[in-house]
């Protein structure tokens, strides 16, 4: 197993200096050179809103916008973020107010345990930036890299559709409800 334990090249333990704009604020920091953007956000900047479920690009929980593009922060070396713009879930709020998409996720049951929610919101934000009025199919395709184990996705689609309406200046949709059948329990 000796081969796997890396013989360190000179300087590999030195911290890297990184200037990166996160949620509109210029940040300047020193980080371990092996860290990904995910680790720097969570551990060096304290922005734990970005989650992780696999760290291998297989679940989508760590999605952020990097220079406006949806990317998985677990597979971006921090060193490659020098001079770039990062938007995380912490950057979605408008002052103390929730963004229309956040409102919609909260009202439509788009978030249960909340662990995929950050990534879902980033993916939905990215989608609506490109397609303000997406079809259900387009929403499904845009969110196809985001695993959710709680919702079965349906209320997430409904949240995206409702949030999209608000962003277009229309009224939000009411939450979709089940059809209620009354009085069945006594046979």
């Amino acid at each position: 197993m000796g081969g796997s334990l890396v013989t360190l090249p000179a300087g590999a333990r030195d911290k890297i200096r990184l200037a990166v704009t996160v949620n509109g604020e210029a940040r300047d920091l020193l980080a371990d050179p092996y860290k990904t953007l995910l680790e720097v956000l969570r551990e060096d900047l304290g922005l734990t809103g970005t989650k992780h479920g696999c760290e291998l690009g297989e679940c989508g929980a760590c999605a952020v916008l990097l220079d406006g593009e949806l990317q998985l922060s677990c597979l971006v070396p921090a060193v490659e973020c020098e001079g770039r713009q990062v938007t995380t879930v912490e950057g979605l709020k408008i002052g103390p107010e929730l963004s229309p998409l956040q409102e919609a996720f909260a009202d439509h049951g788009g978030s249960q345990c909340g662990y995929c929610t950050s990534g879902m919101l980033m993916a939905a934000t990215w989608l609506l930036g490109r397609k303000p009025d997406p079809t259900r199919q387009e929403i499904q395709e845009a969110l196809a890299g985001q695993l959710c184990r709680c919702t079965g996705y349906q209320q997430i689609y409904e949240a995206v559709e409702s949030g999209a309406r608000v962003l277009r200046g229309e009224k939000p949709l009411p939450p979709t409800l089940s059809t209620v059948v009354e009085g069945g329990g006594h046979g």
């Binding site: 796997s4 890297i16 092996y34 860290k35 990904t36 680790e39 760290e55």
Partner: peptide, 12 residues
């Protein structure tokens, strides 16, 4: 968390 091993990065 799975982490990268230590390496040195070059940016040509």
């Amino acid at each position: 968390m799975m982490r990268l091993p230590r390496f040195r990065y070059h940016a040509p």
